[in-house]
Amino acid sequence: MENKCENLSLYIIDELTAREKEQYERHLRMCAHCQHELESLQETWQSLFYEIEEVDVPETLKAEVMDFIFEKNEPVQREHKVETTKKSLIERFKFIFKKQFSPLSTGVAAVLIIGLAGLYWHNLHLKDTITALENEAVGPVQIVSTYALKGQGLAASANGNAYLLQEGSDISLVIELNNMPGTKDKEVYQVWLLKNGTRQNAGTLKPDQNGNGLITYRLPPAHSFDDIGITLEPNPNNTQPQGVKVMGTF
């Protein structure tokens, strides 16, 4: 029996996490043994339900259940009612208006009211923009995800961490490295973001005397990546790596 078959009973009693469930369902499609067992064991589990004493249901219960469900729809109906009373109010208002004002003064008053409403709307809009701007300015910085980096080859002793920070709609990548071997002449460490086999340059750095380095990189909008790789490059500003990989996510 393959290892995954063990999850059959957990699948039946619905105690797998969403991910495990998905994995098991994939396994199930391929595993004749599980397919063979599933239906009868599931039926067994479900039939445990019937170990009940059947009792009479109180007659009032139906009304209570239906009220419970359909009362939830009542507010909608009430709103309709409010709307109709609103309408009749407007009509009454119109009637009073007609009695009090000549067509000319009505026109003038209407223009004034529309003007006022326009100003008010404009004012509201302005307020919204200001609050939006304020919010943006003080928007909290959140760590979206973190990655651990480990050295290899030349920089086997190095290690580091990378953080994806979200500030408003901007996403920045911050990489912090320790124990990096020093660089000679024009040599730099270059960061690459890997996505489906393509690499994107995310900047270069030179570590300090103690081998520590820090780099931040603002990701283009809607940009994502799977892994981070760092190479030791003979010159800065390469668009494709020439040197060897010395660090990466694992």
């Binding site: 009940i52 249901v57 219960l61 139906k62 239906m66």
Partner: peptide
């Protein structure tokens, strides 16, 4: 709504007994 009421009539006894 009538369909829900019909399902109620059919299954409430089972559901009620189980819940009790």
């Amino acid at each position: 709504r009538q369909a829900l009421e019909e399902l109620y009539d059919r299954y409430v006894k089972l559901i009620y007994s189980f819940s009790l």
